[in-house]
Design a protein around this nucleic acid. Structure first.
Lengths: 155, 155
DNA sequence: ACAGCAACGTTGGCGATACCAACGTAGCAG
DNA sequence: CTGCTACGTTGGTATCGCCAACGTTGCTGT
């Protein structure tokens, strides 16, 4: 009668209840947290955050983009993008100039240094994804991407 | 030559680049954000947050638990759990007493009112999950749970 | 018996993230 | 030229996960 709940071992308190562990929103939060920590750890000694990478990658694809366009493409707020571009500009990874064709906009462009930094970041990002998905087969990885994409697209 | 990138339409700037959209960590973050917003919206007029639900649900399963045990079961920090239990106690949903068998611990227990509140919360949580997974078939939902569980267990 | 170590709860604080409100400026449509 | 809209900028808010420190309590080894 020593154990209040009738468990023999006793260390069962550390286990997440099935009721919670079967909750999609909880699992998503947990998995995303792990993903975030993994990516952050891989980018740490590069002094970058994950949004810096996504902005640089988008710029490499677009060539030039306004901050508002970057925000819409990446789901970021204008104010947050302002801070990100400012940081990248201070590191000379991007340039920010008034768009001559629409002087409301800032034309943000990748510099040569930015392009090199992006290449280095890409390596780290790839390593983080590999570590994150280490327990999944190739088929499972594809399935995961498909299902997550469904969820994101429905948003 | 009007369009810098050769796109005819022009509203393509709002689309997330494939390079980003195929990134597991990014998809996880986006999907988790949507899940979080959906749950929060469903719990909003109940004046509760999602961690309140998980704590209440764990207590219903365990009967009694210390704050540290709740933290380990749910992946929450001691300090955060303190705030949660305090809030639940103020609403008389749980009681917090010194555990007579180990006076370092607090024995947190569900009250009758807490049990009723949990039942109401469960309805809202279920509705949120339904809304979240609306675009997925039953098979897809099972697959998603399995894959997310793999990711979380590997953490 | 006692000293040292570990666990617990509590308090206070930090950094990252997502979001919102307001403002001035610039383009655009009626 | 008069609204309306988009844009960038600034500043502020709320949540969340995490960490450090402290006093109390239990356990263990000597």
């Amino acid at each position: 009668m020593g154990c209040a709940n009738g468990y023999p071992g006793g260390v069962d308190d550390d286990a997440t209840p099935e009721r919670i562990r079967a909750l999609p929103s909880w699992l998503l939060a947990r998995a995303a947290l792990r993903a975030q920590r993994t990516v952050a750890a891989h980018l740490e000694d590069a002094g970058m955050r994950r949004q810096h990478y996504t902005v640089l990658a988008t710029l490499e694809e677009r060539g030039s983009a306004s901050q508002a366009a970057l925000g819409r493409a990446l789901g970021l707020d204008r104010s947050d993008l302002h801070a990100i571009v400012t940081a990248l500009e201070e590191d000379a990874l991007v340039t920010r100039e008034r768009d001559p064709e629409d002087r409301r906009r800032n034309a943000v462009r990748l510099t040569a240094k930015g392009r090199r930094a992006l290449a280095r970041l890409q390596t780290r990002i790839d390593a983080a994804q590999t570590e994150l998905l280490a327990g999944l087969s190739a088929t499972d990885r594809r399935e995961l991407l498909r299902l997550l994409d469904l969820l994101v697209a429905a948003g």
